[in-house]
Amino acid sequence: MSFWDASFLWLEPMLASLIGAGLLGYLGFFVVLRRVAFMSAALSQVSGLGVATAFWVGSFFGVSPHDETAFWFSPVTFALGFALLGAVAFTLPSRSRRVAPESVVALAYLASSALVIVVLNSPRIAQEAHEIGDLLFGNAVVVRREHLVQLAVGAVLVLAVHAVFFKDFLFTSFDHETAASLGVPVRALDLGLHASLAVAVAVSTRALGALPVFAFLVLPAGAALLFSERLKVVLVLSVAFSMVSAAVGYWLSWTWSLPTGPVMVALAALFWGLGGLKRLAGARS
């Protein structure tokens, strides 16, 4: 069966990949320029811990991961809740001079990574560990309809917030001090930006997987910044590089039976390499 004949098999995963990649490619602009790449990795782990915790808590109430779950037991509710708490924690410490923000991010990353393994090894959910692993770390090959809907809703919400507050997010990111001096609520905007990142990571990790999510938040924006010095061009290129990596990566992985997530990541890295070559050529001419 050719790739196009099998469109009924890949249409939903492809849509999820494109939506997630586009969203993350856009957010990557802020992730790269604010130098919070490690924060996005930590948010991914924290939201994963939320998913694992949802199953563990559900096991006490006889909730099966295979069934329709009540909102309060839903893995996505837990993932979002945990990720949003992480976003709050990552925003608050910058007030303190004693604890560097990076230390809090590292603590969250390490503690979440360890606790996910501990929770997954709990005898209460051990038999579900494989399927939970898919939910936790994503599987771009097969995406359930409900995950696609959650991803689309999350993307619309995040992009709507950014459409309204883009000028404010940009100002506080570029010059926090001056923005504060003009009465711009920098702390609230930092929290809003980190929360939007948390939502994007929580909904896309389950559809795409942790590695592609981290890659799409860093590589396309980093590459776009090497290609242009114009704000609009950088934003468009970042989203385009991300979506092209997702679509072509999916097609290549299908055609040559390669692992989907890593192929997407490799393509995104290729754009960075091309950007580096362009810079190098520009410097020599």
Binding site: V164, F165, F174, A179, G183, L225, S228, E229, V234
Partner: peptide, 23 residues
Amino acid sequence: DFAYPLDALQVVLMGRAGRKGLA
């Protein structure tokens, strides 16, 4: 941070943020 892809006019415009208000 000079990594930001902003032109001079975009930087100057930021000075209007306090007068414009959020959003």
